[in-house]
């Protein structure tokens, strides 16, 4: 009887007490989670309305945002996407608060570390997102400008600008995440410097004649220009 008391009943009683002690925290956590989900849904709707009132979609259309989202398989408008993200961030914040409310020390330590790192992830994601948009926009602008200027290698110019801007944004994002920050900056500088040097040498040696002919044309005005007044 005594053995049964010590081996089964007493631990069960202690467990029961612990559960009783833990239950309020657990219920609080559940409540917080529910509040977070409801608040997230409300916030999503409110932010969506505000962004639509400010005509955000129309403004960002000019930067090719809609086409970019479409290419990425996202059929939603930017306002809908941003409001959805805001909603999920709210839910996520409440999940963390709910986990902290459970009052488990090891979990708290883990959360603290994660929580401190989270802004970096968020900023890095933003940098990548806008970097991608900017690279598309500037790449296309460079391509069209080069074609209109009669540059034979326009396609290459556009691709280089696009890639260069995106690589720059990736570098910045990785630096933000603290992943080999110095190494990445140095690697980028070396690569970029190397590309510039390679191009300089290539043009200097390979394109010597072309450069001479071009300069001659420009300096001597040999290039036959149109005299059409377009307007």
């Amino acid at each position: 009887m005594n053995v049964l008391q010590r081996v089964i009943i007493e631990p069960m009683e202690r467990l029961y007490e612990k559960i009783l002690q833990f239950l309020p925290s657990f219920l609080t956590s559940l409540l917080l989670l529910a509040v977070g989900i409801v608040l997230g849904a409300i916030l999503r709707k409110v932010i969506f309305r505000i962004l639509q009132a400010f005509n955000l979609d129309k403004h960002f259309e000019r930067f090719g945002m809609e086409a970019m989202l479409d290419r990425g398989g996202i059929k939603e408008s930017l306002s809908a996407l941003l409001s959805r993200i805001a909603g999920w961030i709210t839910v996520f914040i409440f999940v963390i608060i709910a986990l902290r409310a459970l009052d488990i020390p090891s979990l708290e330590r883990l959360l603290e570390k994660f929580f401190l790192y989270l802004p970096n992830v968020f900023i890095a994601a933003l940098i990548l997102f806008f970097g991608y948009l900017l690279s598309n926009f500037l790449g296309r602008a460079a391509l069209i400008a080069s074609v209109n200027a009669g540059v034979i290698l326009s396609g290459l110019v556009g691709k280089c600008i696009k890639l260069g801007v995106f690589v720059l944004s990736v570098t910045m994002a990785l630096e933000q995440l603290g992943i080999g920050s110095n190494t990445i900056v140095i690697a980028f500088a070396i690569t970029f410097g190397g590309v510039v040097l390679a191009l300089a040498i290539a043009f200097g040696l390979g394109g010597r004649d072309i450069a001479r002919k071009y300069l001659e044309k420009k300096m001597k005005g040999e290039e036959k220009k149109d005299e059409i007044n377009h307007l």
Binding site: V147, N148, G150, S154, K224, K225, E227
Partner: peptide, 26 residues
Amino acid sequence: PVRVNLDRMIERFRLGVRELVDIWRT
């Protein structure tokens, strides 16, 4: 008289078709 460089104009057109057709295709 107005001087026109036809070769240059047609070359610009060709370059545009080669490089910008993906934009126009949309």
